[in-house]
Design a protein around this nucleic acid. Structure first.
Lengths: 346, 346
DNA sequence: CTGAAAGCGCTTACAG
DNA sequence: CTGAAAGCGCTTACAG
């Protein structure tokens, strides 16, 4: 079995309290001989002693652990690597561990009862990464759960950190307008099928930002959304070919997300439209896209910042559980690959 | 603060042991009145009692927790959603939690000392998802770590679960050969730059499987690997255009992974080569590709199985830590989208 | 100054 | 049959 303080104490011939203090560097007001301390450390090392943090936690009343709550639906759990990474790093700084939890969330799940996981989950706090399609049942369950919590990537007025999709929409439009574009279209996720519990706020906010900036500049809004129909993925190229072959086709596109890039580029290539000479494009994208060879300018989601910020807020929340914190919105960054260009009048 | 057994016991006016037994359904040999039990459960519910699993763990000597060890390098941590999901589900069945840990692993990191995380990590066991680029320093640190552990997605002779990339390579080739193809090329990850600590075993094994099957059928091996040079991502289309415009171009391609699909399809389209009429393609891919609209036949990685299997093995390993378990290789599944076709002689 | 004792929240073998 | 007591591994206020 695992090595304990007691075993070390027995070997050295001192009290466990001495071993505890030495190993935790709490020897300030104690005058242990350097020899003794070294002996204790040596034995601990040799035996491969690992402090039982659970026992520590029981004693101190803190768990030293934060739980990340995800939906069990893969496509509903937003967990890009950079987000996980920054969270983990930020927690590690504070000596906290990261617990990962997925809630069962099949449609029609019975939530008259609290899910088992919320019955035994012990952590100092919760980061709720339950971005969209949150059923009212599960939402209130989480809301009522006793632990302090921060929601991420979800627009709420308090205790929440989220990317500023509205501002990103404004900025995408602004960049294109600055380049002299007037006929700028916004492409929604046209192959997205509406979910029971509503769409992610980024869908409306990105568009809203675009629309706002267009209006401000007296430009006409052009929304490409499949006219209310869902376009199957294998029909996307044809769909964009059709749009881009219109005589009054847009000179610039803003894409809801990077999955739209391949079909759009394919359509453009088919039509002999070259980027950025004949068409400027900006898309929204996750950080991973930069490494995955995205060839289009992008508003990049602040994943890293969101990880850091969520941990910081949660830590604050843990110290003052009753106080609700003002939500924080985080700015996107801009990734320039040269896919946008000044409009040339022809 | 959190509600404890003691508080409930005080309110009801019984001993904590009674409360513990009632709440844990360990009343078999005890004859508590139904009333009393209901009263205890009711109070527990009202106060929002959550058992302190850490205290339980200290008492029972089990942590009820498994740690997943990842590299801190995003692109080195293989954590597809389905893998995470199946692990989590399998653990949940056993009432275990999932701890997530990333090791610092910058090149040149000093590993004369054990990383802090391995000094305090407490779990019943470890799943090491540290698939490639494992530096010898860190590898031995993990190896020597006291907890029982299972490696995943990494070819080791024992205590390991990994996808059978060799067999998948054989099968991909076999399918194309069955369709009458003879000129079948294997495309490596041509834009991959060699890492300090070697490549993932899938790189050699997928190719090896292909080569084996080709030889078995007396067919010539055709390896497309950039002739030892790394092809930049933005030159990939041109690279494939060049290859596919050769007079003796392959009639079928096997792609190392799905990131090669877009440039290959683009090149084919440019040349007027249609799929599958003029060219059959099979790629290797993760499960996510199926949902992300992959349009090419694929050997799909057994993510789900790997999650389940790793947990099962680890649980076995936890009960018998000294016994080393034979590694398990898992078969890929085949995803057919119609991108392969019988070769027509012209 | 510094050991020994109390106690964190829990479970369960055991005495009555 | 069923309370009360011991004890898991740890930390720290406190008595000497």
């Amino acid at each position: 079995m695992a090595v304990t303080l007691k075993q070390i104490a027995n070997i050295v011939g001192v009290d466990v309290s001495v071993v505890s203090r030495v190993l935790n560097d709490k020897t300030e007001n104690y005058h242990f001989t350097e020899e003794r301390m070294e002996q204790i450390r040596k034995i601990a090392r040799e035996l491969g002693y690992i402090p039982n943090i659970y026992a520590q936690a029981v004693k101190t009343g803190k768990f030293g652990c934060v739980a990340l709550l995800l939906s069990s639906h893969g496509d509903r759990s937003y967990l890009p690597n950079l987000l996980l990474d920054s969270m983990h790093k930020e927690l590690e700084k504070r000596g906290k561990h990261l617990m990962l939890t997925k809630l069962p969330d099949a449609n029609g799940e019975d939530y008259s009862q609290t899910p088992a996981i919320l019955k035994t989950l012990m952590a100092d706090g919760l980061i709720v990464d339950y971005t969209h399609h949150v059923s009212p049942g599960i939402e209130s369950r989480i809301e009522n759960f006793v632990l302090p919590k921060i929601w991420i990537n979800n627009k709420r007025s308090k205790d929440c950190v989220y990317p500023d999709n509205l501002k990103a929409g404004v900025e995408a439009a602004r960049k294109l307008i600055k380049f002299g574009h007037k006929n700028i279209a916004y492409v929604t996720d046209v192959s997205y099928s509406q979910n029971l519990f509503g769409e992610h706020y980024s869908m409306s906010d990105r568009y809203k930002g675009y629309a706002l900036e267009m209006k401000k500049n007296d430009l006409e809004i052009y929304k490409i959304d499949g006219e209310g129909k869902v376009i199957p993925k294998n029909k996307l190229i044809d769909y964009f070919v059709n749009i881009l072959s219109q005589p009054d086709r847009p000179t610039a596109l803003i894409l809801y997300w990077s999955l739209l890039v391949p079909p759009v580029l394919n359509a453009a290539r088919k039509l002999g439209i070259s980027i950025p000479d004949d068409l400027s494009i900006i898309t929204f994208a996750g950080c991973i896209s930069q490494h995955a060879g995205l060839s289009i300018n992008a508003m990049i989601e602040p994943e890293n910042e969101m990880g850091i910020e969520s941990v910081k807020m949660l830590v604050k929340k843990i110290t003052e559980p009753e106080k609700s914190l003002k939500s924080k919105s985080l700015a996107f960054s801009y990734y320039d690959t040269g896919s946008c260009k000044k409009l040339v009048r022809n």
